[in-house]
Design a protein around this nucleic acid. Sequence first.
DNA 1: TTTCTATACCTCGTTATACAAAGTATTATG
DNA 2: CATAATACTTTGTATAACGAGGTATAGAAA
Lengths: 105, 105
Amino acid sequence: MNTQLKKGLLDICVLAELREKESYGYAIINDLAPLIEISESTLYPILKRLLTKKAITSKSKIHNNRVRKYYQITDIGRQEIDEFVGEWGQVEKIISFIKGDEIDG
Amino acid sequence: MNTQLKKGLLDICVLAELREKESYGYAIINDLAPLIEISESTLYPILKRLLTKKAITSKSKIHNNRVRKYYQITDIGRQEIDEFVGEWGQVEKIISFIKGDEIDG
DNA sequence: TTTCTATACCTCGTTATACAAAGTATTATG
DNA sequence: CATAATACTTTGTATAACGAGGTATAGAAA
């Protein structure tokens, strides 16, 4: 998928992935893969960003003698999803215009 | 509107604006304003990009003793719009996921 | 044993893009 | 005479995606 189109979408996809249950980097990449490709060098900075704005939290746990960093969504994170969905109406108008409908349509 | 969400959208909006009839920088900004805000320092680099990939052409014309640079969409430009619309199906699946539907829904 | 694959984390440098700010220049309005 | 509107353009900054590379363990294949 177009790199530019992904901007602003990936953060929300990661948050949506954590909505039902906590997860960790490697699993997030694999779970999202069928829907949207996200590389490691893209995901880890995203997780850092989301931590900084407290949209997620993290807890390291041992699994098979190895450390895994689990991420949990916060209320702020859920709110971000809601805001995004709210804004999406405007994007749909833009797409409608691009597809050939009138602006005031 | 979210800056990141605009990326990849603005180029196509400009092309869509030129689909019916040629136009010039100042008018494009004003015509798109109700739909999507686009500043001068954003539009002019976009027009340059579109010229480089031959998605548009330009012709300077005199209007009220002043030079206006008119831009016309090309077949390549129209093709870009079509490709974008084709790709949009995937984005809609992603939004569906973000809104809370299942990936395989 | 060695090599490859899978698991699991992270960073650096490059590239693309949006945009504020500033600059240039003319015409019309107050 | 000043301000707004018209019309173009460049410079510098911030944000984000991602290839390439690095670290480390475990299990399967050669």
